[in-house]
């Protein structure tokens, strides 16, 4: 038991396990949100197979692969930052959290260039160019913007949450004796990673 935990242990009742379980319950609601969209994707893919494959060919696999590597690495730095705080290495933990945020920003910059290129080619929801295509392709690109867009929103929220935790770590509110909030932020970040693990092949690799 660390000194910090010892100091507060007599005054404050804490249930870290309960806090983590609460975070998992929240993650299940996220599973419902994205699960519903994966259901829609899967059934339209089943109904419009050749059109989905045709549309997927128009996405840049390089962007998707690069972003996969970026997000997987950010998950590593997030997990390492929690290990570091447990080992009472505050500076290392702060550094790793900042690196995680940096990777998230890289991810969004990539996404910006990817979306810009598509929009410049006239492919965005409701565009004339897109509406001339087959129903399957319209559905594919609609789901592409909806699902990667909502995922991108989660990345942005993740940046804000991790940033808040970084401030807490610097101030010493998150320390080796009390880091359950950083763990909860980590759980959220890893869920964002898992969602991308499924989005990536479904949109970029089904060609």
């Amino acid at each position: 038991m660390s000194s910090a935990e010892h100091a507060v242990g007599h005054h404050v009742h804490r249930d870290d396990e309960g806090a983590r379980l609460g975070m998992w319950l929240f993650l299940f609601t996220e599973l419902l949100l994205f699960g519903g969209m994966f259901l829609i994707y899967s059934i339209y893919h089943y109904v419009h197979q050749s059109e989905f494959h045709l549309a997927a060919k128009q996405l840049n696999t390089m962007f998707g692969t690069l972003n996969t590597f970026i997000l997987l690495t950010s998950s590593l730095t997030m997990a390492l930052s929690i290990a570091a705080i447990q080992k009472e290495k505050k500076a290392l933990s702060v550094f790793l959290q900042l690196v995680t945020i940096l990777f998230a920003v890289f991810f969004m910059v990539n996404k910006y260039f990817e979306w810009s290129a598509k929009i410049q080619h006239g492919i965005y929801p409701g565009s004339e160019e897109l509406l001339m295509k087959s129903n399957g392709e319209i559905l594919f690109f609609g789901l592409y913007y909806l699902m990667t867009g909502l995922h991108g929103l989660h990345v942005i929220i993740g940046v804000l949450i991790i940033g808040y935790m970084t401030i807490g770590t610097v101030k010493g509110k998150i320390n080796s004796g009390n880091f359950v909030r950083l763990e909860a932020a980590g759980l959220y970040w890893h869920l964002v990673d898992i969602i991308w693990i499924f989005l990536f092949p479904l949109f970029y690799l089904i060609v």
């Binding site: 696999t61 997987l72 690495t73 998950s75 590593l76 929690i82 447990q86 009472e88």
Partner: peptide, 24 residues
């Protein structure tokens, strides 16, 4: 007790990259 090893995390990260490379 804070005895988590960094090594396991790097190993899993490496496996994830290899699996991504494989699927591409």
């Amino acid at each position: 007790h804070g005895n988590v090893s960094y090594g396991l995390y790097f190993l899993v990260w490496f496996a994830l990259l290899v699996l991504t490379g494989l699927s591409v």
